[in-house]
Design a protein around this nucleic acid. Structure first.
Lengths: 245, 245
DNA sequence: GAGTGGTCTAGACCACCCT
DNA sequence: GGGTGGTCTAGACCACTCC
């Protein structure tokens, strides 16, 4: 349960390996010593080393290559300004990196994630578009958007590989407001697949609801990113005059 | 490495247990069947069951009680509006729940988290105040704030158990702007301790930088929450006229 | 073939709870 | 005592990569 009073071996090993990576004793791009060597060095069984390495997975600092070894991963994270999220065009400007949006599936689905209840999402079937957005050839965002069924596949084709909000704007659609819900979550099955991250990997999520100016419809969606690849920045002016709304 | 081509046993077990919790076959507040029973039912070893249950930890749906069993945890998440974050008073109003802020330590430290570089944080020693914020007797936020050293302990005492921004406002300090960085991360050591969550548990983080109106100083900080206890909401007006800033 | 790491197993031991 | 789950171990087997 809480475990023995003495510090657990796999925990000590985990922390020490983490420390070595941080201190650059194990360098980026290079493999760790083989598990057998680590086991001997730490004086524990190989199983315990494996356990420690597995516990290190959610930190994202390691990458295991089949048949070769466990390598120290390079860390690089993009930052996206939330104030512009889905409100202005010029995606590459926003990211200041070349981005690629690739549609992976178009289906009809019911919105499943319970967090959408915060955004008053409908419960019926909607047109569901999934995309993977990459920056510098690295996937950084997995986007699932839900549109009213009145948007048929033909319209979807026109979206091509554009951002949804950009595509709709090109059609003359204007959005009145955007509601966002930001949260974290262990990686979904789709995200695990899309990003090659293990079960339980922390992700940052942005659930959104776009409402058109004429309020004729709303677009819902969720953008999921591995925690080490994307963060959101916000700048708030001082609004102390408004005490609540 | 990537594992055998056949679906891994522990993965099948994990998904099935997850499914049962979601379908309410295992009910909230009740214990799962003993590991031995699950092992027999699934026709795998107890080790494999243990593995599956461990992989389920980051989802937060289970809570293991020493000597008693593994229980299905109740899920309840608070939502906080980012627009008011640290800008208005009336904390309990904002949360619409009674909150308690408890200072756990006051030290002098160098800002350690590399994410703070995005906020142009200073590299020298600062006054470091750590707090645990609870709502309805549940800790939901672990806050670490950094002030200039000119704030001595006496001033800190006056903060008592108030929110930092509220305390500073009571002192007549006004803030010009707030920069935020929102990201996710596996739980820090302190957060694991404060929330009783395991290593690798996904957390939602809000790094902040408050600058006074006269720009005499800035306050930095980081607020960390278990992913299943807090989310942030944002409402954006349409600002398409501003293409960038 | 020799090396790598991942999976699955069995078994021993410990700490905790309840009766 | 008999129940629980967590830790640590040893060993077998598989898939992969490189020589």
């Amino acid at each position: 349960m809480t475990g023995p009073i003495t510090v657990r071996l796999h925990e000590k090993v985990r922390q020490e390996i983490m420390r070595r990576v941080m201190k650059n004793k194990y360098k980026v791009g290079e493999p760790l010593p083989p598990i057998a060597a680590l086991a001997e060095e730490f004086g524990v069984s190989v199983i315990t080393i494996k356990r420690a390495l597995r516990d290190l997975q959610p930190t994202g600092i390691l990458r295991t290559v089949p048949g070769l070894g466990i390598f120290v991963r390079e860390r690089r994270r993009f930052v996206r300004d939330l104030g512009f999220c889905m409100l202005s065009s010029g995606v590459s400007e926003r990211f200041r990196h070349r981005t690629l949006s690739e549609t992976t599936s178009v289906t009809m689905e019911i919105i499943g994630d319970p967090s959408f209840s915060e955004l008053d999402a409908p419960t019926g079937k909607m047109l569901c578009i999934r995309k993977v957005i990459s920056a510098e050839d690295k996937p950084i965002l997995f986007d699932t958007s839900y549109l009213p069924l009145s948007f048929n596949d033909k319209v979807v084709d026109e979206f091509g590989d554009k951002f949804l909000s950009d595509a709709l704007r090109d059609q003359g659609r204007r959005f009145r407001k955007t509601r966002l819900l930001l949260d974290a979550a262990p990686a979904s099955e789709e995200a695990q697949q899309a990003f090659g991250i293990p079960n339980g990997y922390p992700t940052l999520r942005r659930l959104y609801k776009l409402t058109t100016v004429d309020r004729s419809f709303s677009v819902f969606g969720i953008a999921e990113s591995p925690f080490d690849r994307l963060a959101y920045s916000v700048e708030l002016g001082n609004r102390t005059s408004r005490e609540r709304s």
